[in-house]
């Protein structure tokens, strides 16, 4: 299974590459008034306006860095009653993918799955990487947003 690695705060997270549509650079966002802080704004993605969720802001209350490696991950997500929606997730250091021997997702625990991958290749092989579960981490109301309120 191919995983995309990124950083939120000082920790690394991994997302299953199968649900990713595209990883794109930071673009200009249209701010939306009266939305939670973690909604960074709307982006024009291939002609459709989709909300961009700042994962750093959501999980650590610190906005993502303004840097080349801060990128937007476009994912497809299944939502009950409204089918598949596109979400744009902004995270730091979206620079690496890693191939694991895992075939399926490990069972997830409570709110944040305690699934930790004992590191990948490289000098910090002892690093623990946490499984990123879109459904568990993104607030439910954010899914409903693209369908139009």
């Amino acid at each position: 299974m191919l995983l995309l690695l990124f950083e939120i705060g000082s920790d690394r997270y991994a997302l299953d590459a199968r649900q990713i549509v595209e990883v794109v650079p930071l673009v200009r966002l249209k701010l939306i008034p009266n939305t939670p802080d973690h909604i960074a704004g709307l982006m024009n993605y291939r002609g459709a306006a989709i909300p961009v969720i700042d994962l750093c802001r959501l999980l650590t209350a610190v906005p993502c860095e303004n840097s080349f490696s801060t990128r937007i991950i476009i994912v497809k997500h299944q939502v009950e009653n409204s089918g598949e929606v596109s979400l744009a997730l902004m995270a730091n250091n979206v620079t690496e993918t890693v191939q694991t021997s895992l075939e399926a997702l490990p069972p997830s625990g409570t709110i944040m799955a305690e699934t930790l991958y004992g590191g990948v290749s490289g000098p910090d092989a002892s690093e623990l990487i946490q499984w990123f579960d879109v459904k568990k981490i993104i607030p439910e109301k954010d899914f409903l947003f693209p369908a139009g309120e």
Binding site: L26, V27, N66, S67, F68
Partner: peptide
């Protein structure tokens, strides 16, 4: 990669 992108890039 940690440096901020310039406005033209965005």
């Amino acid at each position: 990669l940690r440096t901020p992108p310039h406005e033209g890039y965005r």
